[in-house]
Structures are given as C-alpha cells and as structure tokens.
C-alpha cells in the first residue's frame, strides 16, 4: 500500500519523490497527500524556541483570575535552583564556618581582652539605660531565632533531617517557619528603635579614622580614644541597620509573594535575602564573641547596663569625659569615692 502510494506520488511529483528518497521514510511527503492544502495553518504562530530566545520566558493569557498562572514557562527556575542548591550552601557554609574558625583562632592565640585594674575599678558607670537594653535584647532574641530558622531552610535537610527523621524535621520546620515569619515583626521594631536611639552616636568622625589606623583595641595592643561607640561598634551598628533594613524589605516582599514583583523578582528577592542573611549571621557571630567571651567587662554594658569605670575609661575615654562633664555632680557615676581627674 505504502509502496503504491509512493510510486503514485513519485509519478505526480518528481521533486517530492526526491525529497522522500533523501529522508528514507516510508511516509508520503506531506505536501502531496496528507495535507492537501499544502499549507501550514499555524505557520504564523509563535514558536517556543524563538520566544524563549527573544523574551527568555513565555507569558500569555489565561482565563484564571491569577496573574501567575499566565506565565507558561520560565526556565530561570532552573537557574534559581542552581543558586539555592549549588551556591547558597557554599556561601553560607564558608561565611559562617569561616567566621567561627577566625574567632576560635583569635581566642586561642590572643585570648580574652582583659580588664585592667586601676584605682577606678569597682566604680560603676551607666552605659545603657533600661530601654536601650530592652530594644537591644528584643532585636537580639528575635535575630537568634530568625537566624536559626533561616539556616534551617538551607542546612536543615542536610544536617538535621538525617538525624531526627523526615516527620520530626517537617514538624520542626513548620514551627520554624511560623517563628521566622512572625518574629520578623518584633525584629523590625527593635531594628527601627535602635536606629532612632543610637544613630546620633554612630555618625563616623575623625576619631574613628585614628581608631581604625591603630587597629582598634582588638587587633592592636593600644587602646585608641573613642566616644560612646568606637569605629568597630559603629561598623556593627551600620551592618545591623543596613543589613537589617535589606532583610526587612526582602522579607516583607516574600511574606506577600507576588504582591510587588513577578517570578523573577521573587527569585532575586529570595537570593538577596539568603545571601545578606548568611553574611549578617557571620557578622553578628563576631559581635556576640566580642561582647561576651572576647572582652572582659563588655557584657555588663548590655547585662546590667553598668560598666566598670576602669573599663569605660580604657575603651571609651572620650565618652566618659562627656558623661562626667554632663553630670558634674556625678549621678551617672555610682561609687563611694570621688574620681580624681586625670
């Protein structure tokens, strides 16, 4: 039957037979029998490869009142997957483990920064009032939960899931997601409060240049002058403010998905949130270290709010002078004996 048709076609259309011979298929050439019009009715229609080349995604129209459904194809999903599964664990792992290693190395080579004993030891000076401590800890406890639950999105399935099993891990992640989404709000409040209350003490000035040149009290052995916050603390402040605002902005975009941006925007938002997040965590690890283990006497500032005057004079001499000038009678300085002027 086929042979007969082919023979017939060959008789009718010499050229058609030539094409047939080239392809070697036992099917008649389309132009002759199967498609009598000899035309492609959808010749003018769009083609996938051409659209993907020109627009890099396929956007159409759909009868569902959901704008997202009109996106037919976005190969960028594969790229975002490559970021999330290929790059992000490495960026996060190197940033956080690298920071931990650096801190361990610092601790074991240089040890704690000790508190000097001077005649002012034992005298206390108020460094952070109750409200300042409250807003710090509000932000801090939220940050710790946000950091752990955030890292769970990246490393949970790799580290925790094999240990506790998929069901327990899914339940934990579900609660972690609730915590991440809702504790973000008190975090943002604490962030704004810290920005308002502390920004005036964190404007960089000439003293900071000298402080950085001398390597601070951390890398060098000297104790350069500083006002209320030294250059290192100002850096942490601006890291927290800028990083925190970026995290808040991208986080809100992800809490209300597709409210302000399309799928590629959401992918970019997630990437920014994740990368800033792991770098933020690494920076805060250093802040936690220097505020607790790294420096003797530093924790009191956020613990009780009152620091040893000897510590304050060592690390924030210009601030102590300011405070003493402000309150000549000395209500800020609690202590039995008068402090001789130096």
């Amino acid at each position: 039957m086929h042979l007969l048709r082919i023979a017939l076609a060959a008789l009718m259309l010499g050229g058609g037979a030539a094409v047939l011979a080239q392809t070697g298929r036992d099917v008649p050439p389309a132009a002759s029998t199967a498609n009598p019009s000899g035309q492609n009715p959808t010749a003018a229609s769009v083609r996938e490869d051409q659209l993907l080349r020109e627009l890099n995604k396929l956007q159409g129209r759909v009868s569902i009142p959901d704008g997202k459904a009109a996106l037919l194809e976005q190969p960028q999903g594969r790229e975002w997957r490559q970021f999330r599964e290929g790059w992000l664990p490495w960026i996060g792992g190197i940033a956080i483990l690298g920071m931990l290693l650096a801190l361990f190395g610092f601790y074991f080579t240089k040890g704690r920064i000790r508190l000097d004993q001077t005649e002012e030891s034992g005298v206390k000076i108020l460094r952070f009032n109750a409200f300042e401590r409250f807003m710090h800890w509000l932000t801090a406890v939220c940050f710790i939960v946000l950091a752990l639950t955030g890292l769970n999105y990246i490393f949970g399935k790799r580290l925790l899931m094999p240990i506790i099993g998929p069901d327990a891990f899914a339940a934990l992640s579900q609660w972690g997601k609730y915590a991440h989404n809702y504790l973000a709000w008190p975090f943002m409040l604490g962030l704004l409060l810290m920005l308002i209350v502390w920004v005036k003490d964190n404007i960089p000035n000439r003293v900071d240049v000298a402080w950085i040149r001398k390597g601070g009290g951390f890398l060098g052995d000297a104790h350069p002058s500083a006002y209320r916050f030294n250059a290192g603390q100002k850096m942490i402040f601006w890291i927290v403010v800028i990083g925190g605002l970026l995290m808040s902005a991208t986080g809100i975009l992800m809490l209300f998905p597709f409210s302000a941006t399309d799928i590629n925007g959401m992918q970019l938002t997630q990437a920014v949130h994740a990368v800033i997040g792991v770098l933020f965590i690494a920076a805060i690890l250093a802040h936690i270290y220097i505020g607790s283990l790294g420096m003797e006497g530093a924790y009191d500032a956020m613990g009780s709010g009152e620091v040893d005057l000897a510590w304050a004079r060592r690390h924030h001499d210009l601030w102590v002078e300011e405070q003493r000038a402000k309150t000549a009678s000395g209500p800020q300085v609690h202590g039995a004996r008068p402090v001789p002027a130096e």
Binding site: L72, Q76, G77, P166, D167, K177, L255, P257, Q270
Partner: peptide
Amino acid sequence: DLCIGCGYCFYACPFGAPQYPRVGNFG
C-alpha cells in the same frame, strides 16, 4: 504531610505548577 508551604517550589518550577490553598506566605 511533610510540606511546610514555604513556596520555594513555585520559584523553582519552570511551569508554575505548584498551587497553594492560601495566598500570603506568612503562617
């Protein structure tokens, strides 16, 4: 039973296949 409704699969899916019962990503 395991899904936590984070919405990541929708970002990764090239074809917009995953669907969620609720719109906001919170809770």
